[in-house]
Write a protein that binds this DNA or RNA. Structure first.
Lengths: 173, 173
DNA sequence: TGAGATATGTCAACAAGGCTGACTTAAAAC
DNA sequence: GTTTTAAGTCAGCCTTGTTGACATATCTCA
């Protein structure tokens, strides 16, 4: 509205002339809502919310990770994390052990109960994913993964790919 | 871990034996976070949040839609909607007109200013999408769209596809 | 025409889950 | 032995969701 028209497009430009990708924008919104909605119903039975789910998920996936590592993954403040983490510990879903090489660190683990819940929620989400892929070509799964990865900030991608490898951090204990 | 292995799978089964799709679960989480994070920074300049964005977006896309229609899309309570809608109206981003066939209804429209902001945010998100697709095969876009649509509850898909068509509702005025 | 249904608006209170800022403690590092 | 680091905590605030109750205007239908 206020910017002068340009005749050439510089690569990496805002490209205000392109029509917005309304379809993908809206699909992403609705799909994500349903995707996180599945676990919500189960979590409510335990008095947990989405924040608990995220913590439980990454603790289960990266057994033995520290508070600092978890904060880095979730990108929330330690005060926010502490509120939900405390509840997960009190209710016996997460366990804390003092680090051995560095005794200032707290290493986080899921308990048997915590692991079961994390797995149950992951399977629920997996079921939705499998149903989404079952009528597609076999390449659809790989395409979905490549698209989602490419949607992530380039600067974060390295870290995300490390997380995806799901390496446990138990070496510390 | 504790369940006996089964040799056959019933279609539509929980399939607890399948390994969870941790990669897609986590990619979806990180990708969506970055996707909605872009607009957040701009919205903060206006004193708006994500809730305002969603309202502004769908009002802009479905010019003339009613409160009831908007509530149905967003799936929040009218009290929640009203709080953000009121602010969008007060600040001159959304305009309300009384319905003509049914004068109980309120038809929602973006103002020029509101349309500009909606477009700016949509373009920002489109840029991320385009960058995600630019190094992929031309089929990647279509695959992403099909995957996301299939992730939505089947019962909702019809409604979502109507929304995607972006038909304006101005006939009423 | 009058009763009831419908669309919207509003008040009050509450909960989840983010945030900032300030401060403590224990352990490691130098 | 001082400084830095990892974690925990207190207090208060914001956004955005919730429930429940009730008001108003308008439409529908017997």
């Amino acid at each position: 509205m206020s910017e002068p028209a340009r005749l050439q497009r510089v690569p990496g430009d805002p490209t205000p002339g392109d029509p917005p990708a309304y379809d993908l924008i809206e699909l992403f919104f609705f799909a994500y809502r349903d995707f996180v909605g599945d676990p919500d119903r189960i979590l409510a039975d335990y008095g947990f919310g989405r924040a608990h789910h995220r913590v439980l998920h990454f603790v289960d996936r990266q057994s033995g990770l520290t508070i600092a590592e978890l904060l880095d993954i979730l990108k929330i403040t330690k005060q926010s994390l502490n509120r939900v983490l405390k509840e997960l510990i009190e209710k016996g879903f997460v366990e804390v052990r003092t680090g051995t090489q560095d005794r200032r660190q707290r290493l986080l683990f899921t308990t048997a109960q915590g692991h079961e819940l994390a797995l149950r929620l992951a399977r629920l989400q997996t079921r939705r994913i499998e149903r989404a892929l079952e009528n597609g070509a076999p390449e659809l799964r790989e395409a979905a993964g490549r698209f989602l990865l490419a949607m992530i900030d380039p600067a974060e991608r390295g870290e995300v790919m490390e997380i995806l490898s799901g390496r446990t951090k138990e070496a510390a204990q």
